[in-house]
Design a protein around this nucleic acid. Sequence first.
DNA 1: GTATGTGAAACCGTTCACAGCA
DNA 2: TGCTGTGAACGGTTTCACATAC
Lengths: 222, 222
Amino acid sequence: MKIPSIAIARLSVYARNLELLDQKGVEVVSSVRLADACGINPAQIRKDLAYFGQFGVRGVGYYAKELILEIRNILNLDKKWRLGVVGAGNLGSALLRHAQFVDGSYTFVAAFDRKPKRIGAKIGGIEVSPIEAMNDIVKKMGAEIGVIAVKPDWAQEAADLLVAAGVRGILNFAPIQLQCPAHVFTENADFSLRLEALYYKLTPARSRRKRHMKSGSVIAPK
Amino acid sequence: MKIPSIAIARLSVYARNLELLDQKGVEVVSSVRLADACGINPAQIRKDLAYFGQFGVRGVGYYAKELILEIRNILNLDKKWRLGVVGAGNLGSALLRHAQFVDGSYTFVAAFDRKPKRIGAKIGGIEVSPIEAMNDIVKKMGAEIGVIAVKPDWAQEAADLLVAAGVRGILNFAPIQLQCPAHVFTENADFSLRLEALYYKLTPARSRRKRHMKSGSVIAPK
DNA sequence: GTATGTGAAACCGTTCACAGCA
DNA sequence: TGCTGTGAACGGTTTCACATAC
């Protein structure tokens, strides 16, 4: 069965909200209640879960703790994923330091930068290495996912290096679409796209400059 | 006409790729060429642009520079948007410092934190203020968009404060769905959802724990 | 009675295919 | 001729509505 990737993204959201409810002491959650928390249609939730099994009890709902475990299993959140980051500037350092304090599903095992002055620094417990060492270090440390935190003009090259070094997935913070071989999965995490979507929403249509129509082509606009 | 919000997100991508092509000296771009660069269907691009006007020349294509301006106008990228960030930890500081070096469409005009020890620090040229001052400072500085860079357990409260202070949009880096009044637009920029989508893609189905079916309910699985 | 699981319907976005125009 | 702009066809996702199970 084909599972829409947007359904996968929603599973993450369900898990988060279930955890919040669980922390509040809620033991059983109906799809309606969870849907409320997520701002979503209840049938959507039931359909999404149905892709993977039957996790609820008819007439009752879902046991929060149990469903959390199910989703964590589907998304494979219990494994500690090993990440290597390219770019130890503002964003890269923030990611490294952040990970240090979060007991999450991932851990950084390597960091790389092109700038000599950054090499050797320890950030969040990880030493920054030169990109020439990427191949060796990625393999030695078993990094499975590469994180791109470099300027856009260098992002594709960083991706090529990561792919050559053997990562299977790339989380891309640069605002471009990476070209990668089919066996390497990529996800975009660039927030400037999100910000620009906000700009649009915040701009009333009438305030946009009026565009010229081409030379009298429109006689009767519908 | 209803414009799908995903079309808006693509406009950002078109603009980026057009700028890259423009820098390479390309003057005229066909929808096929742009589609190649973006990894997308050409008709999609023409449809997306058609929501906003007629920007191309039949038999020729689009003039890169001109189309860039059109999209910048649609997304309102020429205005300097004024942002205020809540949370001056790793992520918040990285955003502040990053913005300092980017001559982009936005600028940070305020930063807030709940932790006393962070108050008064200058990060990326912006002084960190206590959240009690949010109302005054947001208004005084004319911050239009709030950025949430705090831990998830405090994100909703941060959003409420921003809304009360009068921001019209919120860029949310916390991994929860914010509840906001209808007149405030929100966009989620949390990357853990993206990362979890990667986990799923990288996990072969057979490696997931097999789930029990409920007590003999399935006689003949289809 | 109540809430899940799921076919069927409705809806929406994408792609096709070609008319229209430079 | 060549490429845009766009109605129509298509395909996929969302929502409805109800049979099913507790």
